[in-house]
């Protein structure tokens, strides 16, 4: 008699979770960020594309009249335009060169454990809450050559009545209203620097200055880069302060691209020319942004 053993019962494999359908798997995650893409397109991409289109047209009021190709850019990049571009660079670069180190320096001071530190922080960050219009009117009064409280500093001369003095005043006020942003970002970054690392560098023989430049600054480098990008965009696009403080004068000494874009678009209603100025500004912003990121990547690699 032969007994045939029944084949061993194999345990049924656990039920696999239902596989999402192919289309759902592929498009599901995409669907989640579509709303964000649509939003970005609505508030950024479409207006930029529209501005580029406008910049190629002659306009009447706010309506396009005739395709003129690059004619509007001939105004922006013409002899007067290059002067405006040069002034824009001077305004942005000098403001950055002053505001970033000033913000960093103040952040280092505010990071020290001293008495009344909160009061110091409030006072130093105060200009941040002042609007550009108020700041411009305040400084216009301070610098007035006839009755301004600071007029004696300039020997009775009025800085705002001179093209160089006017640009210097514009940069001063610009730095005054924007250094608190630099200070806050730097302060936040400084508080993330490990104290042990700094102390270790001191034990290894670094001076405080060496510790700062070799340990602290590299640690907060990415914050500094973001700060520089933010301030660059802010300065390139600033209209209210320039318009209220100097109006671009005197002798066109503070005529910058952002003011040109505003005046052409909303004072002279040449929206095509205004759009051309905006496109050039946009391109400059992109170029500067990419350049900063490359600098950061380069130093990270090294």
């Amino acid at each position: 008699m032969t007994v045939t053993a029944p084949p061993p019962v194999r345990a049924a494999p656990p039920e696999a979770p239902p596989r999402p359908r192919k289309g759902r798997r592929r498009y599901g995650p995409v669907g989640l960020y579509v709303p964000a893409l649509v939003l970005v397109a609505l508030v950024s991409v479409i207006p930029i594309a529209w501005a580029v289109r406008l910049s190629l047209y002659r306009t009447r009021g706010l309506r396009t009249v005739e395709f003129v190709g690059w004619d509007n850019f001939a105004t922006v990049l013409g002899p007067d335009g290059w002067g405006d571009i040069a002034r824009t660079f001077a305004y942005v670069v000098i403001s950055l060169v002053v505001a970033v180190p000033l913000g960093l320096g103040l952040a280092v001071l505010l990071n020290k454990p001293v008495r009344y530190i909160r009061a110091f922080r409030v006072v130093i960050l105060l200009p941040w809450v002042v609007s550009q219009t108020v700041a411009a009117l305040l400084w216009k009064w301070l610098l007035n050559g006839q009755y301004g409280p600071l007029h004696s500093l300039f020997g009775g001369r009025e800085p705002l009545a001179d093209p160089i003095g006017s640009m210097a005043a514009l940069i001063l006020v610009n730095v005054w209203i924007s250094y608190p942003l630099a200070t806050i970002l730097c302060l936040a970054a400084l508080q993330t620097v490990p104290q042990e690392t700094v102390e270790a560098s001191r034990v290894d023989g670094c001076s405080p200055t060496q510790s700062f430049y070799r340990i602290v600054v590299p640690t907060i480098r990415s914050t500094l880069l973001i700060l520089v990008i933010m301030l660059t965009l802010l300065y390139f696009n600033m209209v209210t302060l320039v318009y209220t403080l100097t109006g671009g004068g005197p002798f066109s000494g503070t005529q910058v691209l952002s003011l040109d874009a505003f005046l052409q678009s909303f004072q002279f209603f040449k929206i095509g020319v205004g759009a051309a100025y905006s496109v050039v500004l946009f391109a400059l912003n992109i170029v500067f942004g990419i350049a900063y990121i490359r600098v950061l990547r380069g130093s990270s690699d090294s």
Binding site: K140, Q146, Y147, R157, E158, L160, A161, G249, P250
Partner: peptide
């Protein structure tokens, strides 16, 4: 008038008259 008028528009001139400058 001196270079101070380079910083003046109508509002500043009228304010100057009011202020006695």
């Amino acid at each position: 008038m001196g270079r101070e008028v380079l910083t003046m528009g109508a509002d500043e001139v009228v304010n100057g008259v009011k202020a006695g400058t």
